[in-house]
Nucleic acid binder design. Structure first.
Length: 817
DNA sequence: GTCGGCTTTGAG
DNA sequence: CATCGCTCAAAGCCGAC
C-alpha cells in the first residue's frame, strides 16, 4: 500500500467532498506531477486528460502489483472497471481493493474515452445523474454481494435509482388516478404549478389582512410623497430548482416542467431565453429551438423549496422598515416607503439584492424603484435580469419609453397590445409612440377605463384603480369570491360520475368557505366542452384541447354554506347546460357573492371572559375541566354588541347590503342615520319589485301563457318569476289555481319537448326554496300547498320521463321518497 | 341610462 | 411514459327594462 500517494490512497479517502476546481482537487504530489507533465518536452498540449492517463497508467501498474501480492487468483471482476462517485459504504478504499484483487480495474477519474464500465455510487445528485446518464450506475452492494457469491451478479439488480423520480413511481405504481378517483383533486393540485401560484397568492393576501387586524398599518395618504419598490425574483422556479439540484443557473439553459413533449414550461432561465425559449411554451417546441445538439436541461418542480425561499425573501422585506409590504405573489412584492433620496434608494436596492441572494443560495431579485406603481413596474422591466433601476420623473426621456413594448404596461396583454398597435397607421410598436395617442382615441380603442389607465401610465401616473393597493390595501386584499377550476384530466363517461365529481369540488370549496367563516349567495358553473372540430384526444396528454366555454350562474335567496343546497344547485345547472358527459373537458365552480357568516359562535354557549377571570382559583380548575368536556369556550363579550332588535332587523335586510349595515352601525351615528335612509329606500324598492312580479304573475296577462312561452327563450327570467311566485305565496295560501294550471301546462310543454333538464332545474330550485324557507314558514298553508305541488305535480312530470335521463338512479334518490 | 348575466382579459 | 391548462378581479359587451 505504500505505493499510494495521498491523493489516491484509500486512506486519504475524503468521501464526498464538494467539487473543487481541477487544480484544487490535486494533492501536493499530484500537483507536482501535473506541473512536471506540463513542463516536460510535450510542447503541443498537455491536457488534463493526458495527465490523468499518465497517472492511470502508473496506478494500473501499482494495482497489478497489489493483485499479484494479495489477490487469490479469482477474477470475477475481469473486464469490469469501476469508478466510485461520492461517499459509499463500504468506502472507496475497500471497493478499490475488492475490485483489483479480483481481476477488475479501478478508475480514478472519468475519462471521455469510456474505459469505465460501471459507476459505483450510493446516491447521486440530479446534476451528476444527468451527466452520467450514459453509464451503468449501481450501488456498492453489487461489488460486495458479487464477491460473497463468488460470481458477478447482474448489475441491473443493483442499479441506483434516484429517490425522487425513479424509486417513487415504482414504490407506488397505483398513484395514477383518473378524474373518477376520489383522490384525483388532491393529486392534481399537488402537482399543478398554477394551483400553487393561486394558493400562495391568496395565502399571502389573507396573511396581510390578518396582520392588518392585529396592528393597523400605516397607510400613506394620497398627498404623501412615496417611493415604490417593485421587487421580483429572476425566473424564480428555474433559479430555485437549479439551485436545489446543483446546477449553475448561468451556465446551462434550464427549464422547469413535468414532461418531455407537450408539457408546459413553467419557468426558463435567461440562458434558455437566449434561444427564444419562453415561459408557457411546450418543452418539445423549446427543444427544437436549441441549436444543433445543444442540451436543454429539464428540471422538475420543488414546491416546498419554492415556498421556503419565498418565506426568506418576505422575511427580509418585513425586516426592512418599509411602510408597507404588499404581496403580489410568491416571488414578487411591492414595498412602499416615504420620500427618499436617490442615494437612499440605491443603498436599499443593493442591500436587499445582496441579502436575498445570500439567504437563497444565490437566487437573484431585480428591483424597479420610482414614485408610482407603474413607473416602478417599468423600471423593473428595465432592470431585468439581475439588476435594479431607480427612475426619476425628470429622466423620463425618449430612450426610456421607446425601449418598452406596449404589453410591458401592467394590464396590457396580447389582446390589448394587438388592438392598440393595429389602431393607428403605421402600427404603434413602443411606448414612445403610444405617448402620442390622445386620451380620446385610446378610449375609443380599448374602452373608457382602460384607455384612461394607459393614458396615465405612459405619463408615469397610476390611475385610481391601480392606486387602491396602496391607499386601501385592506379592501384590495379582501377576498371577494372563491372558486375551483379543473381543466386537465377531465374524462367522464356518465353524468353520475360528473355528479360525484361536482360533489367533491363543492366539498373542497365549502371547506374553504367555512374556514373563511363566509357564506355564498351566488353560484356560477363554467364548463369547457370539446369543440366540434377538436379530436377526442388533444396533443397534450389528458389536456383539454380546443374547447367552447359555457357559464351559468344562479342566485340563492339566502346566503348559504350548506353542501346539499349548493351541490344540488350546481348539478342542476350542469344539466341545464346540456353537455354530453363524454364531451366535458373542464369544469369550474365559483362562489361569487361572499358574505360574512353570521357568527354561529355567538349562538353557542360561552362564558364571559370577565366573569371567568374573577372566579376563585380553586373553582377555576373544576370549571376548566367541565368547560373542556363540553367544548365551551371562554370568550370576551363583544364590546360593540348590536342590540337584538337591530340584529333582527339586519337579518331581514337584503343580503347584499347587510354587510355594509353591520359595519355602518359600528361607526358614527351620523353615518348610521344616512345609511338607514338609503336602506329603507332600497327595501321599499325591492318590495315594490316583488309586488310587481307577483301582480304580474297573478294577473290576467300572466307570463305563463303558453303562447308566450314558445317565443320566450330566457329561461332564467322564467325561473326568477317562478321563484318570486313561490316566495310571494308561501306565507299565505299558496299558488292560485289558475296560475297553477298554466304552470302545469308549461311543465308539460317542456316535458313534451324533451327539455327535462329544465323541469329538473325548476324542481330543484323550488325544493331548495322550500328548504330555505321551511324554518320560518313550514306552518303556513302556502308552504304546505307548495310541498304538495312539488310532490304531486312537478315530480311526476320528471319521473314519468325519467328514462330519458342518463342518471335515472340519481333521480330516484333525490325525488322518489 | 342602468342593471344583471355572461364573456374576455390579464395577472402570477 | 405522457402530464398535472389555477384562480382571482376588473372591464367590456349585450339584452331587457
Amino acid at each position: 500500500m505504500s505505493g499510494y500517494n495521498q491523493e489516491d490512497s484509500p486512506l486519504g479517502n475524503r468521501g464526498n467532498v464538494p467539487e473543487k476546481s481541477f487544480l484544487e482537487s490535486l494533492s501536493d504530489d499530484g500537483l507536482l506531477d501535473y506541473i512536471t507533465g506540463l513542463s516536460q518536452e510535450r510542447s503541443e498540449q498537455y491536457s488534463r486528460e493526458d495527465y490523468f492517463h499518465d497517472k492511470q497508467r502508473r496506478q494500473d501498474r501499482q494495482d497489478q502489483e497489489f493483485r499479484e501480492r494479495y489477490g487469490d487468483g479469482c477474477d470475477i471482476f475481469s473486464g469490469v472497471s469501476i469508478y466510485v462517485n461520492g461517499f459509499t459504504k463500504p468506502g472507496r478504499m475497500q471497493l478499490h481493493e475488492m475490485v483489483i484483487a479480483n481481476g477488475g480495474k479501478f478508475a480514478h477519474f472519468l475519462s471521455s474515452k469510456g474505459q469505465v464500465s460501471h459507476i459505483i455510487a450510493s446516491n447521486l445528485p440530479l446534476k451528476k445523474r444527468v451527466e452520467l446518464a450514459n453509464y451503468k450506475i449501481c450501488r456498492p452492494e453489487w461489488i460486495v454481494d458479487s464477491l460473497q457469491r463468488g460470481k458477478l451478479l447482474p448489475w441491473q439488480d443493483y442499479a441506483l435509482l434516484s429517490d425522487q423520480d425513479e424509486i417513487q413511481p415504482k414504490l407506488q405504481p397505483t398513484t395514477i388516478v383518473s378524474c373518477k378517483h376520489p383522490e384525483f383533486l388532491k393529486q392534481f393540485f399537488s402537482k399543478s404549478r398554477l394551483h400553487h401560484l393561486s394558493n400562495w397568492k391568496s395565502d399571502l393576501r389573507a396573511e396581510f389582512c390578518e396582520k392588518f387586524l392585529e396592528k393597523p398599518l400605516h397607510i400613506p395618504s394620497k398627498n404623501d410623497d412615496i417611493t415604490v419598490f417593485h421587487i421580483d425574483f429572476d425566473c424564480f422556479f428555474a433559479s430555485v430548482s437549479a439551485m436545489a439540484n446543483g446546477f449553475d443557473i448561468h451556465a446551462d439553459p434550464i427549464v422547469v416542467c413535468h414532461g418531455t413533449k407537450n408539457s408546459d414550461i413553467a419557468s426558463c432561465n435567461y440562458e434558455a431565453r437566449r434561444y427564444g425559449i419562453r415561459n408557457g411554451m411546450w418543452v418539445g417546441t423549446a427543444e427544437r429551438m436549441m441549436p444543433g445538439g445543444k442540451r436543454l436541461v429539464r428540471l422538475g418542480y420543488d414546491f416546498d423549496q419554492f415556498e421556503l425561499m419565498s418565506k426568506r425573501f418576505y422575511q427580509i422585506l418585513h425586516d426592512s422598515q418599509f411602510q408597507l409590504v404588499l404581496p403580489i405573489s410568491i416571488d414578487e412584492a411591492v414595498c412602499i416607503a416615504g420620500n427618499l433620496s436617490h442615494m437612499e434608494c440605491d443603498s436599499i436596492c443593493q442591500r436587499i439584492r445582496e441579502h436575498v441572494s445570500s439567504v437563497t443560495n444565490g437566487c437573484t431579485v431585480s428591483i424597479g424603484c420610482a414614485n408610482s406603481l407603474v413607473l416602478a413596474r417599468l423600471a423593473l422591466k428595465w432592470s431585468k435580469p439581475n439588476g435594479y433601476r431607480i427612475v426619476n420623473c425628470d429622466e423620463l426621456d425618449a430612450t426610456f419609453w421607446s425601449n418598452l413594448k406596449i404589453d410591458d404596461l401592467p394590464g396590457v396583454g396580447r389582446s390589448l397590445a394587438y388592438k392598440i398597435s393595429e389602431y393607428s397607421n403605421p402600427p404603434i410598436g413602443n411606448l414612445c409612440e403610444l405617448r402620442q395617442m390622445t386620451l380620446d382615441s385610446l378610449q375609443r380603442c380599448v374602452g373608457e377605463k382602460m384607455g384612461n389607465k394607459i393614458y396615465l401610465a405612459v405619463r408615469g401616473k397610476d390611475d385610481e384603480e391601480s392606486g387602491k393597493i396602496i391607499y386601501d390595501p385592506k379592501q384590495f386584499f379582501q377576498r371577494k369570491s372563491l372558486s375551483i377550476d379543473i381543466n386537465w384530466g377531465i374524462r367522464f363517461d356518465t353524468i353520475y360520475e360528473i355528479d360525484q365529481f361536482i360533489d367533491r369540488c363543492t366539498q373542497y370549496l365549502i371547506d374553504k368557505l367555512k374556514e373563511l367563516n363566509k357564506k355564498t349567495s351566488q353560484l356560477t358553473l363554467k364548463i369547457m366542452k370539446r369543440s366540434k372540430d377538436e379530436s377526442i384526444e388533444p396533443p397534450k396528454y389528458l389536456g383539454m384541447g380546443k374547447c367552447d366555454p359555457f357559464a351559468r350562474s344562479t342566485r340563492l335567496g339566502v346566503p348559504t354554506d350548506e353542501f346539499g343546497i349548493i351541490t344540488t344547485e350546481i348539478k342542476s345547472t350542469f344539466r341545464s347546460l346540456c353537455c354530453p358527459p363524454k364531451e366535458l373537458r373542464g369544469i369550474a365552480i365559483q362562489f361569487n357573492k361572499l358574505e360574512n357568516s353570521v357568527s354561529n359562535q355567538s349562538k353557542l354557549p360561552f362564558v364571559d371572559a370577565k366573569i371567568y377571570q374573577n372566579l376563585p382559583n380553586d373553582v377555576k380548575g373544576e370549571i376548566d375541566q367541565e368547560l373542556n368536556r363540553r367544548k365551551i369556550k371562554v370568550k370576551a363579550t363583544a364590546a360593540k354588541r348590536i342590540n337584538s332588535y337591530q340584529e333582527q332587523f339586519i337579518q331581514e335586510l337584503p343580503t347584499q347590503i347587510r354587510n355594509e349595515v353591520e359595519n355602518e352601525i359600528i361607526i358614527t351615528n351620523k353615518a348610521k342615520r344616512t345609511k338607514f335612509d338609503e336602506i329603507k329606500e332600497q327595501i321599499a324598492k325591492r318590495q315594490n319589485e316583488k309586488m310587481n312580479a307577483k301582480a304580474h304573475f297573478l294577473g290576467e296577462t300572466t307570463v305563463l301563457l303558453p303562447i308566450k312561452f314558445q317565443n320566450q327563450t330566457n329561461f332564467k327570467r322564467i325561473i326568477q318569476l317562478i321563484l318570486n311566485w313561490v316566495d310571494g305565496t308561501i306565507r299565505s295560501r299558496g299558488p292560485h289555481e289558475k296560475d297553477l294550471k298554466l304552470f302545469e301546462k308549461y311543465l308539460q310543454r317542456l316535458s313534451d319537448a324533451n327539455r327535462l333538464p329544465l323541469v329538473l332545474r325548476i324542481c330543484k330550485l323550488i325544493s331548495t326554496k322550500l328548504e330555505l324557507r321551511s324554518e320560518l314558514f313550514s306552518h303556513c298553508n302556502g308552504f304546505q300547498e307548495w310541498e304538495r305541488v312539488l310532490l304531486q305535480i312537478i315530480l311526476p312530470k320528471l319521473n314519468k320521463n325519467k328514462h330519458t335521463f342518463q342518471t335515472v338512479r340519481k333521480l330516484d334518490i333525490d325525488f322518489d321518497t
